[in-house]
């Protein structure tokens, strides 16, 4: 069966006064139906821009400068606005990071849900309302009739994110792009939402791109991981394999900086240096200035290379499988 989503060498550039910021510069990954991909990277690595590129929601001064995004056989970059509008919310839904900002403050919840149904289907308002109500029940909101008549400010952050998830689920989409949907919530709510989204997607066979900077969050959730650095995918593969055996020095650095139970009392290692500015990226490998393994070869940019075991790495000097020594 063909892939649900295939992104190939995506380029999304922002033309700013200070120069061209290549926020996404060579992103390649693919997704099967029902699969969960964790898209991980530091702040500014281009995760959100990748998500918005898929939906065609990159606003000026940004634009997709190259590459292909093929969704279920259709090229979204070539497809244009009418085609994208038909897909948005219908077959590809998105959940945003800050639930306090995603719902319109002056419109009631029922308005915001019903319009989503009516944007894609010609059904009577009463039916749209019934679907909205069912979606609220699905995400665990009690007293849905009362909630439908409320305004967003009458909800807590966790509740608002549930409403946003309910909106995303209205059309049972093939793909949900979740852009750090739990970052703004407190830890207990985070865990709840995480497991709810996971089970809802499993139920309906919805594929999920879970964007996060937190490896710990996504490692229990995702089937596959894609690690981004400076607008590029630098390592990609099945979650368990990548976590157990990170081969790119950056991925390894990320994993070593996550606290683990067994390492109690030990110093957490950190990746030295800072995220480079997109306007002043080094020649060659973008991670080289911060990389312990960098040498002269890294002055040329490595390509994202499949390594045979269903994984890909963009590195001249990846860690070998055997090199990984597990803590006793």
């Amino acid at each position: 069966m063909s892939k649900l989503l295939e992104i190939n060498d995506l380029q999304t550039h922002f033309h700013t006064r200070d120069g061209v910021a290549k926020a996404v510069d060579g992103v390649t990954f693919s997704l099967d139906r029902g699969e969960i991909l964790g898209l991980v990277g530091e702040s500014g690595s281009g995760k959100s821009v990748t998500g918005f590129s898929i939906l065609g929601l990159v606003d000026p001064p940004g634009r997709i400068a190259g590459g292909r995004i093929v969704f279920d056989g259709d090229d979204l970059v070539a497809g244009g606005e009418p085609m994208l509008r038909g897909l948005r919310g219908k077959r590809i839904a998105m959940i945003f990071q800050d639930p306090m900002m995603t719902l319109n403050p002056v419109l009631r919840i029922d308005t915001q849900m019903v319009e989503t149904v009516l944007a894609h289907e010609r059904v009577p308002r009463s039916e749209a309302l019934a679907r909205a109500r069912a979606a609220l029940v699905q995400v665990g909101i009690s007293a849905p009739d009362e909630r439908l008549r409320s305004y967003p400010h009458q909800f807590s952050g966790g509740m608002r994110q549930r409403v946003a998830i309910a909106i995303a689920l209205l059309h049972k989409p093939d793909l949900i792009i979740a852009d750090e949907p739990t970052t703004a919530l407190d830890v207990t709510i985070q865990a709840q939402i995480l497991s709810e989204v996971q089970s809802l997607c499993a139920q309906s066979g919805t594929a999920l791109i879970w964007i996060t900077h937190d490896l710990a969050v996504v490692s229990g959730l995702a089937d596959r991981l894609a690690v981004m650095y400076a607008g590029r995918i630098i390592e990609e593969g099945p979650t368990a394999s990548v976590i157990a055996n990170p081969r790119h020095p950056y991925t390894r650095g990320l994993i070593d900086s996550v606290p683990k139970g067994k390492q109690h009392g030990r110093m957490l290692s950190q990746i030295k240096g800072m995220t480079p500015s997109l306007l002043h990226l080094p020649e060659g490998c973008k991670f080289a200035p911060r990389c312990p393994r960098a040498d002269a070869a890294c002055r040329s940019e490595p390509a994202l290379t499949p390594t045979g075991d269903d994984r890909s790495i963009r590195c001249h000097h990846p860690h070998e499988d055997a090199e990984r020594v597990h803590a006793p």
């Binding site: 939906l55 919310g89 995603t102 989503t116 909106i167």
Partner: peptide, 21 residues
């Protein structure tokens, strides 16, 4: 604002985004 982008991400027409949201 995010809520305008979210409205667009729901697949609303440009007209509805401007005239309502």
């Amino acid at each position: 604002q995010d809520y305008v982008k979210f409205a667009r991400a729901k697949g609303l027409s440009g007209r509805r985004v401007v005239m309502v949201h």
